[in-house]
């Protein structure tokens, strides 16, 4: 990440530069282990959204806008739900009911277990992470003093 004059002080920027990837990693950990430990798609998604918001607070909005491709984020968000529904529909043909399990259940307490639940957790995590970030981004972008249109 490059240096800019906008945003908070150099200390905050440096700490954010190091910690943001750790926060994202922690979010991914929570999402992937959703079927074994407390947490899951929503909790992990919120952590990922907070990582992005951290960047936004420390580096300012202009930098974040350059750093992230918002059109891509929007497409990923919409397609994660579509994929969720497609996996659910696959459950009808392969598992007998909507959202039913059709993958191998695996061994208890292993990472690769619990059938389709980890898949749903990952999709929900992507959706929650991006949409929560976008909600706060949009709310922060409205200037209450000026009237648009």
């Amino acid at each position: 990440m490059m240096k800019t004059d906008k945003g908070m002080s150099i200390i905050v920027k440096t700490v954010t530069r190091i910690s943001v990837w750790l926060i994202i990693l922690y979010g991914i950990y929570i999402i992937v282990h959703g079927h074994l430990t407390p947490g899951g798609g929503f909790g992990g998604g919120v952590v990922i959204a907070l990582a992005f918001l951290n960047v936004m607070l420390a580096y300012g909005k202009e930098f974040t806008e350059k750093w992230l491709n918002f059109q891509l984020l929007h497409d990923i968000e919409s397609s994660s739900v579509t994929v969720f529904l497609v996996v659910g529909i696959l459950g009808i043909s392969l598992g007998g009911a909507f959202l039913a399990n059709f993958l191998s259940k695996g061994d208890l307490f292993e990472l690769y277990s619990a059938g389709v639940i980890p898949v749903f957790n990952i999709l929900i995590g992507i959706k929650v992470g991006i949409s929560l970030f976008l909600v706060v981004w949009l709310l922060a972008g409205i200037n209450p003093e000026e009237e648009d249109e």
Partner: peptide, 13 residues
């Protein structure tokens, strides 16, 4: 439920 829901997100996609 599926048909209108998937239509909603396909539209946004």
């Amino acid at each position: 439920i599926i048909i209108p829901l998937i239509a909603a997100f396909l539209i946004s996609l």
